[in-house]
Design a protein around this nucleic acid. Structure first.
Lengths: 234, 234
DNA sequence: GTGACCTGTCACAAAATCGTCAATTTCCTG
DNA sequence: CAGGAAATTGACGATTTTGTGACAGGTCAC
């Protein structure tokens, strides 16, 4: 259950302490000393969770939380706020602002880790997981199933993600690099040729159910999923 | 968001104060002055949430929480504990015992109401108490029985709840984390692989009565209950 | 007590999937 | 049509994910 956590805390001592504890719990921690930096990091790195001190120099924690909630891409990221004792107003405001939880300073490392774990696990399943249908082929992320008409298609996890991406971005040519970013994740280190292999496996799974020409090769550029045949006529 | 709330608090003055505030917030409040009474009320009335003072005469709040978590029927009821300042030990113990949240006394009415709202909101939509039937398999929460056609199936409590959840949410793929949330509750600290073990036990119980392929593994994602075979029949 | 369950975790076995490579084939350019 | 770049393919060892059996505690009804 390792996770990327952004810690927003201005006091170096506390920052250090928390980071050490989270690190020991197996999490990867990125730190920010102020809200502006934090905002930038969130946009760039999209952490799994934000640990947010409520009292910050400059932009307040509340304001940052509000902004994160306002942005489409960062809306789903859970926020745990750190408050000093007795800041009753803040707690209420924070919860209403969309914080998922709060912890009152001082807190024990165990409590912090326990709360993080709970929040991460509670994360709602993505809402934008609609089924895709295209040219007689349907794919449903919720059930994790693919059908060619009535016939089920069996795919490995990677092929499934690849097909999902292609079906949600049809007709466009995607370079191998783009596919690696989108399907594998932009942090992995994998040969570009690997894409070829998975495309091949995907084609092999689609061909027996009458979808051969579906994934087309664009020489020198990449691949494209298209309901239209690659070449007119013939 | 009106809810039935059981307030367990021995000090009449505080009891009165809290009850008044909750009532103003639109909740229906039932009160108990000690843990024994509370336990009885919970079994009878099945409130939506329990507000539990940690310091009680006789049976402690922790003990009550433990018992509620141990009982099949009351396990899912959220618990918010009320603690005095500085009782750090209690917080950790409480959270591990299954409390969904805690509030440090003294607290503001606004905060209390906000916390209650948050806890109720994140509670998973409760499965119906109606009997479920699916592909020759029937499960009745009321009688706590499972039948495969005419044949009774014997299950342990956890397997029963697991099957219940899967039957009420068929076809969908559930990650181990989601199953832990929904079946074990989001407050427990259990390894994800434990899910595997219980799935195995469930499969073992279902297989001799002709329901082998019912629970399917979706590699890399989780498990799925489906009347449809994973792969088209050969 | 005590014996019959249940539970959560491990360590290990079994399976499925992955990423690479090298050999081939295909396709474009001159 | 030759040459060479680009893509396809089949094979394979490495890695990751699941399935299993065993086990140490804990609970509960006798």
């Amino acid at each position: 259950m390792a996770a990327n956590i952004l810690l927003v805390e201005d006091e170096p001592a506390i920052q250090e302490l928390i980071a050490a504890n989270l690190g020991r719990a197996g999490h990867h921690v990125v730190r920010a000393g102020d809200a502006e930096t934090a905002q930038r990091i969130v946009r760039d790195a999209l952490p799994d969770l934000v640990l947010l001190d409520w009292m910050l120099p400059g932009m307040s924690g509340i304001e940052l939380a509000r902004r994160l909630r306002a942005d489409e891409r960062t809306r789903a990221i859970p926020i745990i706020m750190l408050t000093a004792r007795g800041e009753e107003q803040d707690k209420v405001a924070g919860l209403e602002m969309g914080a998922d939880d709060y912890i009152t300073k001082p807190f024990s490392p165990r409590e912090l880790v326990a709360r993080i774990k709970a929040v991460l696990r509670r994360r709602a399943p993505q809402a934008t997981e609609d089924a895709v249908e295209l040219g007689g082929l349907s794919l449903d992320p919720a059930t994790h199933r693919v059908f060619a008409g009535e016939q089920p298609v069996t795919l490995g996890p990677t092929e499934f993600r690849l097909l999902h991406f292609l079906m949600t971005h049809p007709e466009r040519v995607h370079s191998r690099a783009q596919l690696l970013d989108q399907v594998w994740g932009d942090h992995v280190f994998v040969e570009e040729r690997t894409v070829d292999v998975h495309v091949r496996r995907l084609r092999a799974a689609l061909e027996p159910v009458g979808h051969d020409g579906l994934i087309q090769t664009v020489r020198g550029s990449g691949y494209r999923l298209s309901a239209q045949p690659a070449v007119a006529g013939v």
